[in-house]
Design a protein around this nucleic acid. Structure first.
Length: 491
RNA sequence: GGCGCCGUCGCCAAGUGGUAAGGCAAGGGUCUGCAAAACCCUUAUACGUGGGUUCGAAUCUCACCGGCGCCUCCA
């Protein structure tokens, strides 16, 4: 594949051609979740976006190392203090038990959404020595200073601070408590290490006494540890651009003297019915609840229907519309697969047709359009339209008056698997080769379809409608097409 | 207040200098025992508003209006 690969680099505010540090390989770091509560659909947007980006890069033949951290310490212990520590005290559980619980929930949610696991999921609590080392380096180079057992980054010692978010130092405002604020030389300085009050449960020994790491140092330390001092892509949600991502850059570049991530990809935010989700408004939709009400593939379709860098508004109506759009693709895929299965046992169609060359060319064109769309800053919305066009091609083929060639239908199915399945991950899971019971189920349904076919042949429509209605009550929908009856799960 | 993103058909959404993709919804048609699905046709002379640049702008520029995100933990 030689199609171009460009992406919008937030750091330069330009669309650039992607050139990895090591040709053929991609090092990617994405800011992961703070595991202190159930994951919500905003997380789903970001991680589905990077899941598809990683799938596409691999599809293009690149070797990807995908690192995504788990924040289980740090700022969690600061603002999350009441939640974690009070809750932990009340329930008499260790903070790490809380963290463990939600980390498992996070992975379960991602699995349900078909989001592939990162290659490395480093936890902040497991990299305290690395963080301490980096802090020591920063102190030695004059970029940080210690006060009362805490260490702060001296923003004035890093002139480039603000280059990602476009903010200038003078604009920064300290958000820390007054006591902490007074310790700092400048209000915009931020904590690398915090002295632990006696009531803190999670704390570690350090050269500056017992304490815990600051909010941002984990990402700098873990990204450079697993990807190198300079790596290719850093991703995350746009709302973390400042201060989190900005501080990551400052820490890492001040410590190593080298550029940190070369390309920054930030995802747009998700709103719910037009407003931001927040716990105080009580309008947070958890992933597990969304998955209970919608097909995971349809949720992916919805998230991919808008460009990753832009915003998206979640609502029941929007999900409904996306589900309909997804069903067209899933239906076309399912129908084509069933056509192939039937064709094996019944009278096979012609192996080639005059239209064959045309179909082959169409398939080639669709693949090229897909690769080009995704290669242009991962334009998934356009990629989806290519899959929609494939659905039209496939549907037209198997519903035509002239029976299609088996090879043509097979080519459509293969392209569905390759693009919609492999890269976008939106093909119905139930259509994949299933367990023994799934095959038995399919066999039973096909038996009923045969019996209904016989009933229709002798004009016994009461019997044929009974089969169709009863199956529908069981969640199996029959659809009569030109080439025979297909079935799908539905309501 | 500062930084940044955005405003394209009823809804969602691509397009970022060359004359408006796609999906959903709606209307008409074909197919069907009926139904569903599918397929075909129709639906923005128009891209928040007003100027400017250009042979030419939804695309560049200025102003204004409106929405959103961040500036405090947040994907």
């Amino acid at each position: 594949m030689t199609a171009e690969l460009t992406l919008t680099n937030v750091l330069t505010r330009k669309k650039e051609s992607f050139e990895p540090v090591v040709p053929g390989q991609v090092s990617l770091y994405v800011c992961g979740p703070t595991v202190q509560d159930y994951m919500h659909i905003g997380h789903a947007k970001t991680y589905i976006a990077f899941d598809v980006i990683v799938r596409y890069l691999r599809y293009r033949g690149l070797r990807v190392r995908y690192v995504q951290n788990i924040t289980d310490v740090g700022h969690l212990l600061d603002s999350g203090e009441d939640r974690i520590l009070k809750g932990a005290a009340r329930d008499r559980v260790q903070p790490m038990q809380v963290v463990e619980t939600y980390m498992r929930e996070y992975f379960a949610d991602m699995d349900a959404l078909g989001v592939g696991r990162p290659d490395i999921s480093p936890r902040a609590s497991g990299h305290i020595p690395e963080q301490i080392e980096m802090i020591k380096t920063l102190i030695a180079s004059g970029h940080a200073y210690e006060v009362n057992g805490s260490v702060y980054f001296d923003v004035s010692a890093f002139p480039e601070y603000g280059k990602l978010s476009g903010r200038r130092v003078e604009e920064a405002e300290a958000g820390a408590r007054e006591a902490v604020r007074e310790e700092k030389r400048n209000p915009e300085d931020f904590a690398l290490w915090k002295n632990a009050p006696p009531e803190h449960i999670l704390k570690w020994p350090s050269p500056w006494g017992w304490g815990y790491p600051g909010w941002h140092i984990e990402c700098s330390a873990m990204a450079t540890k697993y990807l190198g001092e300079t790596f290719d892509i850093h991703g995350g949600g746009r709302e973390n651009m400042f201060p989190h991502n900005e501080c990551e850059i400052a820490q890492a570049e001040a410590a190593t003297g080298k550029p940190f991530a070369r390309y920054w990809l930030l995802t747009g935010s998700l709103t719910l019915d037009g407003v931001k989700m927040s716990k105080s408004l009580g309008n947070v939709v958890r992933i597990k609840d969304a998955v209970a009400k919608n097909r995971p593939e349809a949720i992916r379709y919805f998230m991919l229907s808008a460009h990753y860098a832009g915003p998206i508004d979640y609502s029941d109506a929007a999900l409904e519309a996306s589900t309909r759009g997804w069903e067209r693709i899933a239906g076309a895929y399912s129908a084509a697969r069933q056509w192939l299965d039937r064709d094996k046992t019944v009278d096979g169609g012609p192996q080639t047709t005059e239209a064959g060359a045309e179909v082959a060319q169409a398939v080639t064109d669709l693949r090229a359009r897909f690769i080009e769309a995704m290669g242009d800053d991962f334009n998934a919305p356009v990629a989806l339209t290519v899959v929609q066009d494939l659905a039209r091609l496939s549907n037209t083929l198997i519903n035509a008056n002239e029976p299609p060639a088996r090879a043509d239908v097979a080519a459509c199915v293969a392209l569905f698997d390759e693009l919609a399945g492999g890269v976008l991950g939106i093909l119905p899971k139930t259509a994949e080769t299933g367990s023994g019971s799934a095959e038995r189920e399919a066999g039973l349904i096909n038996l009923l379809i045969e019996m209904r076919k016989d009933a229709r042949a002798r004009k016994d429509f009461a019997a044929s409608d009974r089969i169709r209605d009863q199956l529908k009550a069981l969640g199996v929908v029959l659809e009569d097409g030109k080439a025979g009856t297909t079935w799908k799960f539905g309501d």
